[in-house]
């Protein structure tokens, strides 16, 4: 028994907040679009198109210094507005403001980082409203979001309260704990589940949830392979 909000919001969870430490970046994919998720050293999270305008290198291969993210390839540095601020090969150059990387609307809620998709759309709805939650893990599966949702409906216990603000997220009661699962569609056949629980949840419960995650992955991938 689960609730999913339909139609799905354009806010998609792309990582657990705790897994993107200050000063680091990671790559991910939403519906085929490559995204770099990074956190500046002041702690703000950003989700951008994962592509340096210079030579197309993935920005997620690069590195974060202060509030700039730097391309690994030729060291072009971008500020938090996505604007290129420094080109090492031309240190004297005042970089034209037109050199910039497209950004997604970004928010943090429920222990997850959310991006407003697809790229270039104006935000029609506010970011998800979720209580403060603690990330347990992200688990990646070779299965569609629909397959995972169906499997969760068949295998889960009684539902937690209906929260209209939940988007691309499901709440379930597992191990006597309300578990919030952010659903990220990577492609038609791949997705990520970002698992979060109330702060202060006992380690033994979280460990049981790790077993549950691995079992679920095995189950849905088995179903997907058999389909």
């Amino acid at each position: 028994m689960t609730q999913t909000q339909t139609p799905r919001s354009q806010w998609v969870p792309v990582a657990l907040s705790k897994m993107i430490e200050a000063g680091t970046s990671a790559g991910t994919v939403v519906n085929g679009a490559e995204i770099v998720v990074w956190r500046d050293t002041a702690g703000a999270a950003h989700a951008w198109e994962d592509r340096c305008p210079h030579r197309g290198m993935k920005m997620s291969f690069g590195f974060v210094r202060g509030d700039h993210i730097t391309c690994l390839y030729h060291g072009w540095e971008y500020d938090t507005s996505g604007t290129c601020r420094y080109v090492p090969a031309h240190p004297e150059l005042e970089v034209p403001k037109s050199i910039c990387i497209s950004r997604y609307g970004t928010a943090e809620a429920g222990g997850m980082i959310w991006a407003y998709t697809p790229l270039g759309t104006t935000e029609q709805d506010p970011p998800p409203v979720l209580p403060a939650l603690e990330g347990v893990r992200s688990v990646y599966m070779d299965a569609s979001v629909a397959r995972v949702s169906d499997t969760l409906q068949q295998h889960s216990s009684a539902p937690a309260g209906d929260d209209a603000a939940l988007c691309n997220a499901i709440t379930l009661t597992l191990e006597n704990t309300v578990v919030t699962i952010g659903l990220q569609q990577i492609s038609d056949g791949q997705c990520a589940l970002h698992i979060a629980v109330p702060e202060g949840t006992a380690p033994v419960t979280k460990e049981a949830l790790l077993d549950w995650c691995e079992d679920l992955r095995r189950t849905v991938e088995g179903l997907e392979a058999a389909a």
């Binding site: 897994m19 430490e21 990671a26 790559g27 994919v29 992200s138 990646y140 990520a192």
Partner: peptide, 14 residues
């Protein structure tokens, strides 16, 4: 093979 799907390993590698 990208690092996207292995967040714990990514933090460990760091």
């Amino acid at each position: 093979l990208d690092h996207d799907e292995f967040p714990a390993a990514r933090l460990w590698a760091r």
